[in-house]
Write a protein that binds this DNA or RNA. Structure first.
Lengths: 146, 146
DNA sequence: GGACTGTTTTAGATCTGGTCTAAATCCAAT
DNA sequence: ATTGGATTTAGACCAGATCTAAAACAGTCC
């Protein structure tokens, strides 16, 4: 279901040049946050990331994590999403256009490859509207695992 | 685009019986909140509603507005949605399954009739997953009005 | 090197949306 | 009128996120 081939996650070593390529000066803090955020597929809150980054020893201040995350969002390195209900903000290390499945019981959030843009074609839009993004969350309940 | 015929919004006078039909005791406060929330198509935050209800004179406490809204959500009288980015929680007076268009420039949120459930069929789901809800937001920019 | 400049980070204060609590009020049934 | 359960209230509280002003850091020029 999830097609990892559509995105290659960088290794820790690749992070500094990756940031530089995006015009982001790779400070120690930014590199640490990026390594924790970008190197695997995941959906985390800013606070989870803050704790992960500082797990072993204090490394990066809270404000820096928040700032850095929005720098990454602007640079297109991570995407943002929130649960349709609830309002918790998650950061997603996958930026290609994809949909999400939300398991209502476990609260788990999964990526699904789906051409959400072509799905959106089936929605009647105003003539002058240019689509800039499509967010699709399918909420499910597992019949067996319930 | 928006098809008002798919939902009839109640009049102020109909609110008490509407609540009673749903098993909600129609207190003065609940009726006030319902009148402000349910009688027309809209997307509002809890706080906007709180202020609207108390615009002329203090009428309902903040906590009551929040409690009442979640009672209405549980009863299926209103639906909840959050902006994929941002995390602001909106309450929607339309409960039939529909999609949303979000104008990135104006911040305006509009209903669109679309069979989101059948759209979700095109997404590859786990075998044992039963769809309980589909949230679709198409973000747009207006070419002319920009 | 050392002084200067702009950028980044920091700790902690602050803001904000939302929930909790314990007391007061309401309402229906006796 | 009194009782008892449901509802509402004001204000305290909480968590996530942002703001602030000071300190640390790079890079440049002498």
């Amino acid at each position: 279901m999830v097609d990892e081939t559509t995105k290659n996650f960088p290794t820790n070593k690749e992070i500094p040049s990756l940031l530089r390529n995006r015009g982001i000066f790779p400070t120690r803090q930014r590199v640490r946050v990026a390594q924790e955020m970008l190197c695997r597929p995941q959906h985390v809150t800013a606070d989870q990331l803050f704790m992960a980054v500082n797990a072993k020893h204090p490394a990066v201040a809270r404000a820096t994590v928040y700032n850095t995350l929005s720098i990454f969002v602007n640079a297109g390195l991570v995407s943002v999403l929130t649960m349709p209900d609830g309002g918790t903000v998650y950061y997603d290390s996958s930026v290609h256009h994809h949909a999400h499945i939300f398991d209502e019981e476990s609260g788990e959030l999964m990526d699904v490859d789906a051409d959400v843009f072509s799905l959106a074609q089936h929605v009647a839009l105003p003539d002058d509207a240019e689509v800039t993004g499509v967010d699709l969350v399918v909420r499910v309940r597992r019949k067996t695992t319930g």
